[in-house]
Design a protein around this nucleic acid. Structure first.
Lengths: 150, 150
DNA sequence: TTATTTTTAGATAATGATTATTAATAACAA
DNA sequence: TTGTTATTAATAATCATTATCTAAAAATAA
């Protein structure tokens, strides 16, 4: 397996894993790559499905355990959804707004420069110390809209 | 039981239930009142705990089924949280921002007039048809901050 | 290298919130 | 008041996630 076919992000995480004293197993490498390759905030099942063909013996539990590990290291952010399980962000593992298509289930990152200022204002007017946020917009993505108009 | 001791909001929902052909049972009335009385977006368990003293035989399943019914009628909005179950809003059952205290678990409504304009801008720049949103800010409420400073 | 120790993987059981099921009960119309 | 039918209560089922436990693999020591 070519170790040098990794994205910079994967290399980055591998270094941090090593630094924290964790082992780089073939399974972890495959899971990491599946996370990094996915462009749409995958679920555990999606990652599992992507790893399975190359590592048929991989257990779902291993994927879950790797997710826990990556969360602890701050390299993956969990986005909780009631139905159908959580989704994950390895590319930008800090809170940021998302656009969620309720038809095809895709999740895209949204640019919202105004958010920081908004948070500041809200903190001042309420007395809350705001530490994090969850900002998601639900709707129909351009592709699904096009399909719907057949 | 005094039927006239209901808040306007409870009366309102009772009317809609009747109009939709649903029966007004003592359990439903008690659950509705528990929802309306709670000022902090209760969980199913909180409602169950509030109903239990007056109706010791009430089942948790009945609370869940009433929640489903009220959701279908649009009289209750579910706010999904991964850990510790969902929370509900009977007072303002349409999407709006919340302030969530991660220490005492309280949930407060937030005023954010800028949100509509923001949504509009985002819809135009991305091509999404935005239908709903989830905007929550997590942090420490003023009371918990005061307590922490002992 | 070989032995020893520790981490990790894999399989599967357990958990916990929610839902589905089903027999018994009660709301409401006639 | 009675009959029809929705609703209740109890409990089993579900499903994503977590915990457990044993075997395999890798790191470390000898």
């Amino acid at each position: 397996m070519n170790v040098h076919s990794n994205s910079p992000r994967v290399e980055d995480i591998l270094q941090r894993l090593r630094r924290a004293g964790h082992r780089i197993t073939p399974q972890r490498l495959a899971i990491l790559r599946a996370f990094a390759d996915s462009h749409s905030h995958p679920s555990v099942d999606m990652v599992y499905a992507a790893v399975k063909p190359n590592f048929p013996t991989t257990s779902l539990a291993t994927v879950y355990k790797t997710v826990v590990l990556l969360k602890e290291l701050g390299e993956v952010m969990e986005i909780g959804f009631g139905e159908g399980g959580n989704r994950y962000d390895v590319r930008v593992p800090t809170p940021h707004p998302h656009l969620v298509c309720t038809r095809c289930r895709r999740i895209l990152d949204a640019e919202l420069d105004a958010l920081d200022h908004l948070t500041e204002t809200l903190a001042q007017s309420t007395g809350f110390r705001i530490l994090s946020h969850r900002v998601d917009f639900y709707g129909i993505c351009p592709e699904c809209r096009r399909k719907a108009a057949h």
